[in-house]
Design a protein around this nucleic acid. Structure first.
Length: 216
DNA sequence: CTCCCGATAT
DNA sequence: ATATCAGGAG
């Protein structure tokens, strides 16, 4: 496990590598962000953006998603994968927004997580990106990077990873750090082919040597 | 734990 | 051919 000084070095380094890390899911309001993030489960954001480009032109409000047959919505998001679950969730989510939230996306984590297809990770993204409420969403990249670097333990659950990051990172830097960890994981410390050879953090990474061998 | 699932990289 | 992708629900 990294000590506080090492954590500080990690934050500084990923800040230099990805100073302008940001949410890469295209959206123009909280409602579109909820849809985009719920679609992004087990799918690249590039593909989500390809689908939402057309989707957001066709469906503007919660009412629009309910107005069409479920099969039509399934077809509009088919290329994403997991499309039956996602279509059903989006439809129900829109119904709930209209019934319980005046058609608007709630800001509270507890309320967000009541929506179908919205778990803690998605709720945290919406809170942080759409509403500017401090939160750290732990996705596959944040989890992998945190564990490889030794920010947390290998056996930690995603919730434990989130708690560790909240404890180790100053609250005013949660949003920024969250996106930098994602960029670091997505473009540098990748799942299949991590760039260990050019990694400025290799000396404090427990997994680095293992990956160096595999790539040689 | 399993299932959902197409697109892409390796 | 297999692993992975801004996960969530049962």
């Amino acid at each position: 496990m990294l000590n506080n000084k090492q954590i500080e070095r990690v934050l500084e380094t990923i800040g230099e590598m990805f100073p302008d890390a940001h949410c890469e899911l295209n959206h123009s309001n909280p409602f579109e962000l909820v849809i985009a993030v719920s679609l992004s489960a087990q799918c690249t954001d590039a593909l989500v953006n390809k689908v939402t480009k057309k989707l957001f032109e066709k469906y503007k409000k919660p009412e629009d998603y309910i107005a069409v047959p479920l099969e039509e919505l399934q077809n509009d998001i088919r290329s994403i994968g997991l499309y039956r679950n996602k279509a059903k969730n989006i439809r129900k989510l829109c119904e709930m927004l209209l019934e319980n939230y005046d058609g608007k996306v709630p800001r509270e984590r507890e309320e967000l997580m009541k929506l179908p297809g919205v778990g803690r990770k998605t709720a945290n993204v919406v809170m942080s990106v759409a509403f500017g409420i401090p939160a750290i969403a732990v996705d596959t990249h944040v989890e992998r990077v945190s564990k490889r670097l030794g920010i947390c333990r290998w056996k930690d659950s995603v919730l434990e990873v989130e708690k560790t990051l909240m404890k180790k990172v100053p609250e005013e830097k949660w949003g920024q750090t969250h996106h930098r960890l994602i960029f670091f994981g997505r473009y540098h410390c990748k799942a299949q082919k991590p760039q260990c050879e050019i990694c400025p953090l290799l000396d404090l990474c427990r997994e680095g040597k293992k990956w160096m061998k595999r790539s040689s």
